[in-house]
Design a protein around this nucleic acid. Sequence first.
DNA 1: GAAAATTAACTGGTATACAAGATATATCAG
DNA 2: CTGATATATCTTGTATACCAGTTAATTTTC
Lengths: 284, 284
Amino acid sequence: MAHVIIVRGAASTGRYGQAMAETETDAVSENRMKRKPRAANAPPAAGSGMRVRSAAKNSDIVYRDLHKAIVTMELTPGAPVLERKLTEQYGVSRTPVREAVLRLVEDGLVEVAPKSGTFVARIPLSVVREALVARRALEEVTVRAATELSSESQIMQMRAIIQHQQEMADAGDEEAFHQADDKFHASIAAAARYPGIWKMIQQVRIQVERYRRLTLPQNGRMPMVVKEHTAVLDAMAARDADAAVARMNEHLDKLQLDISIFRDLWPDYFAIDPSLDEKLFAGK
Amino acid sequence: MAHVIIVRGAASTGRYGQAMAETETDAVSENRMKRKPRAANAPPAAGSGMRVRSAAKNSDIVYRDLHKAIVTMELTPGAPVLERKLTEQYGVSRTPVREAVLRLVEDGLVEVAPKSGTFVARIPLSVVREALVARRALEEVTVRAATELSSESQIMQMRAIIQHQQEMADAGDEEAFHQADDKFHASIAAAARYPGIWKMIQQVRIQVERYRRLTLPQNGRMPMVVKEHTAVLDAMAARDADAAVARMNEHLDKLQLDISIFRDLWPDYFAIDPSLDEKLFAGK
DNA sequence: GAAAATTAACTGGTATACAAGATATATCAG
DNA sequence: CTGATATATCTTGTATACCAGTTAATTTTC
């Protein structure tokens, strides 16, 4: 995972093409001076595919890696994020590293103390509480729409995903189990035709995810999750939206059981939240 | 609005203190070489107030200005965002400007074509549709909690806000009207003690806001909004959560009337969305 | 020894320079 | 005059250098 050197482009900063612009005659250069500066680029056409083939920037790579490391608790809350170290590990300059860090700040996964240091953000308990509420609300509309819109093939695919999740639970592969979990909820969102809302759910899940990484190993919740997923899917297959919503809510409610316990177990991982008013009006 | 020069810090890059490190004796410098490099900074304490006094960076200023300009349709969809021009307007270098632009990309308000240009993002209609659904879901839980938790003084404050909004509607001051509208919904979120969810609502609102800026001048909707707000508040004051939710939903539903009409009126402002699958699985 | 003052080395924020790709304009062929 | 080619100049992405603030280690003072 660590010490991955990015070699896209010229890693060794060779100064080729350094003596080329000097070999021009005055006549030609004068001719070139007559060019008018070109106008600003036109925006891409409206109806066109709006193809933005973004060629995987270095900052994206750093961002994804760090994001994953933080969410999986590989980097624990409070751990320092050293820009210098990252530049060495990835073989890139500070700029893309900095961009990645800034995006993580936007996600609420890291915090920066201006001239002091950057650290993996602690888990604000009130945010976890709210995230659970928000996710419930969003998954509710999603599963309701999916119950109406999902095709039979999509239902079958979900059954396969649940089966796979069962197998991973039996094998005790937590990582694969998580991935299957993610895939199940994603397929619901896909069936509901709510890609944007799924994005929001993911964003919210991230905040809860780190917390869940602590809770899940505790009790043997993995088989229960599979059962709950099955209940949701059964209701969807029966085209009973209300039941599907109810099962989903029951499923999600299982997470918010014992926050205080874990705060006592890993006190350094959680943060006391600032006052509500402050957060509310910090934006403007 | 434009051409605001930021003068925080030294604008004229004076090279003071350029000849200072040279005047040391060898003995002293040798002594200093014996210092061990200090350890990495410690993360801020867990229980402490987590005070991150971020001193309003230049990039924040640029971000806020651009954000506002885009949301208010002062910068129309498809308009180019020239980093060069912004550096001149604000008197700062490209770095903070670039940070601001990247944050706006994260918000979905601008799009960058890698080596070509940066433009104000068009409004993807499907995003608007989803945003309306998501906002409905989130405002629902918010207004429900607010109905239970709001104090009498908070109710009174909301009445004052509505009254103010009425006055602004009468005066025809659209900008102030919008602000009052924002304040009303914000106060509901505050009463519900859901600062995080309010943040999400705001994020979602932004996508709809630009669309709404086009629709609102059309019909005389301002007085109707005030009435709808009053209905919501009345239900809250009566502590009738279900009614409050119903009134809020009615209020929000008024927005999604006629998307197609506006797409035909300003075709260049809207974008055809890529396929759903693409968006869903673009993340991983 | 212990506490206060000093100082050096770290940090993130910013400025600037360079590289590589994309595009509008100029040039040229028919 | 029209269409294809070329090229200058624009753009963003990246690298590097510098500044100011913070902090830990050291030194000084009592």
